[in-house]
Design a protein around this nucleic acid. Structure first.
Lengths: 216, 216
DNA sequence: GACAGAAGTGAAGAAAACTTCACCGGCTTA
DNA sequence: TAAGCCGGTGAAGTTTTCTTCACTTCTGTC
């Protein structure tokens, strides 16, 4: 059961939301203020926080920033009565998952919540694995060289790579090629040529970024 | 000198922008269409692209997605005559750095450009990271957790971390703390509290960046 | 068909990364 | 001052990662 934290100073709205969301099968808690919300987040993990932008004492935007620090995985949906584009833009930049304006229809809120949960599942499950693989692939200098080579030449055979990198034992290269294949960074065609996958191209962007930094 | 690519089908506006931005000390190029812009990006690196949302043929939003694929480091500022919140939100989600609506004041545009460049420099600072050390530090999930924790709480003692991560043997944590110290990612004060160094903060940015790459 | 080079497998060993354990000294606090 | 937690060391053990080596299979070519 997904846990939702409702943060709003308006008691009536909070009550309504609680009733509706519980009816829709969510587990909800309420916070009267941003500070209270932060305390609750510190001790318990929520899947989603519904955060009112305008509250007494502390600005909702501030609270958003703090929330993302304490619980980066909790998705925040900003709610506001005075929606402006600048506001929406900066909320999303600060890590909000969505932004809806009051008054909103219940249906609209529920679909937004569902979508955000859907997106978050996607990101946490599959993508974490990917990071794992990508980072450990990139942490080896030989593999970084191989990736760079493949980026420069686009397609290369095993022995080409072996010679280019000046490695005596070709089976050593075979080993790293297998790692890279398992990480989904490279593939092989029928002619046995290796080439970068889309994932691999992303890894290159990432590496380039880093390498530029180091050499400059 | 920062390079800016102006993408708009309106020749007059393009001309004006070129004149103003060159006057402000930027180096500019023009593209009449999204497709042309993509071709230009493929062969040359720009710091910033000013992208009109509404253009004949291809939607600016599509172009934005393609741009981020080809040149993830080029910052895109979306410009549109028909600004809506949904639009702004989804543009930022797709990786745009900012979103401004027509008609805009020159001053406003210039400040936006300056701010975006400022933000991008922030990311460029990652250059000082030692690739080898950082990558191997980050490739371990326990260490990533530690870094994230320290980012959220800023200062933590050994046993706090140990309990938070639900690890039985505290010497295991000691081991990873030492690794992180050696990599220059964390430090310890006299009260034995661990905290992120500047390098460590960069490492966090770096991780977030990678997450974006992997998830996009 | 014989030979040479390309590509790869599997096993064994070495090195690095990580975990566990036994134990210490310092600091509270009851 | 004894009990108990905290932060740590060093050595031993385990697991992963990487390297090396001996051997196979396939392909092209003379």
């Amino acid at each position: 059961m997904k846990k939702i934290l409702i943060v709003d100073d308006d008691g009536e709205l909070r009550g309504n939301l609680t009733e509706i969301l519980r009816g829709a099968g969510y587990c909800t808690d309420e916070a009267v203020s941003g500070c209270e919300a932060l305390e609750m987040l510190a001790s318990k993990e929520y899947d989603i926080a519904l955060l009112d932008m305008i509250m007494p004492n502390r600005d909702g935007m501030d609270i958003l920033t703090e929330m993302k620090k304490i619980r980066p995985r909790t998705r925040v949906i900003m709610i506001t009565a005075f929606a402006t584009i600048e506001n929406a833009v900066s909320a999303i930049k600060k890590g909000a998952s969505d932004y809806i304006s009051k008054p909103f229809k219940i249906k609209e809120l529920i679909t937004t919540i569902k979508r955000v949960i859907e997106e978050s599942r996607f990101e946490t499950d599959i993508k974490k694995l990917n990071i794992e693989y990508t980072l450990s692939s990139l942490s080896n200098p030989i593999r970084r060289n191989i990736i760079n080579l493949l980026n420069a030449r686009s397609k290369m055979r095993l022995m080409e790579i072996t010679r280019e990198l000046d490695i005596e034992d070709h089976t050593k290269v075979v080993f790293h090629m297998r790692m890279l294949k398992e990480a989904g960074i490279i593939e092989q065609n029928k002619e046995k040529s290796y080439f970068l996958t889309k994932e691999g191209e992303r890894a290159i962007d990432f590496l380039k970024l880093l390498e530029n930094y180091v050499t400059s």
